[in-house]
């Protein structure tokens, strides 16, 4: 398996599918501690990404991610728009014009995505945000890329599993950033919707390579 432009397009397509499938679940999570628009916004945003991919098929993985970044920033509407937009944009930046992404390349892309989210949202691990999915994912991808062989699937899996565990770990946290922080202690006991959608995105990257 190589991570080429076909993989990137399939990844974004699976992201759109996942957001449509989990739309209600994300809405419920966001209703508990936010403004209940996350599922709606992510579904709309990734559907718009599909439209753009069909209009102007990208030539490289980096171009595909850049197109997704611009579309999400314009179409999502909520905080997830600039956050995911920045994440995809920074990840695209690490890929440049490369035709294929190797294990170290995927680790670098996830790290850049995390850094972009941190820079844009000013959140830290433990604040009950999507950083709690992306930070462990970036660490796990780097560890897997450093120790593993040339096979990229294990690096994709490592990032996805770490993001999923990170999302689950937001359940007991008290939100310190974003709309949920207005709730204070009442935000504990609910999963962060942004961390949940982040895990879906990184899981879709695995599915696209399978």
């Amino acid at each position: 398996m190589v991570l080429d432009v076909n993989w990137a397009v399939k990844w974004l397509t699976l992201c759109a599918q996942a957001m449509a499938e989990h739309r209600v679940e994300l809405i419920e999570l966001d209703r508990a501690i936010g403004d209940s628009d996350h599922g709606e916004n992510m579904d709309r945003g990734f559907q718009a990404v599909l439209d753009k991919l069909a209009e102007a098929p990208p030539a490289t993985p980096g171009a595909a991610l850049k197109l997704a970044a611009m579309t999400l920033m314009s179409k999502v509407g909520g905080a997830a728009g600039p956050l995911y937009g920045t994440a995809f944009l920074r990840a695209a930046g690490t890929m440049g014009d490369a035709a294929e992404i190797d294990p170290a390349g995927w680790a670098a892309a996830v790290s850049a995505a995390r850094d972009g989210i941190v820079a844009r949202g000013k959140a830290e691990p433990g604040d009950k945000t999507m950083v709690d999915a992306w930070a462990p994912a970036a660490d796990a991808a780097k560890a897997a890329a450093d120790t593993g062989g040339p096979e990229v699937l294990s690096v994709l899996v490592a990032a996805a599993e770490a993001a999923e565990a990170g999302a689950v770990a937001t359940d007991p946290l008290v939100a310190r950033k974003g709309r949920a922080s207005y709730l204070g202690e009442r935000s504990a006991g609910h999963r962060d919707p942004g961390a949940a959608s982040s895990a879906l995105i990184l899981r879709a990257a695995v599915g696209a390579a399978a």
Binding site: D37, N41, S74, K75, G77, G85
Partner: peptide
Amino acid sequence: GTADGRIGTSLE
């Protein structure tokens, strides 16, 4: 608001 008149912000 967003480009389609909802609550939110739009880069465009």
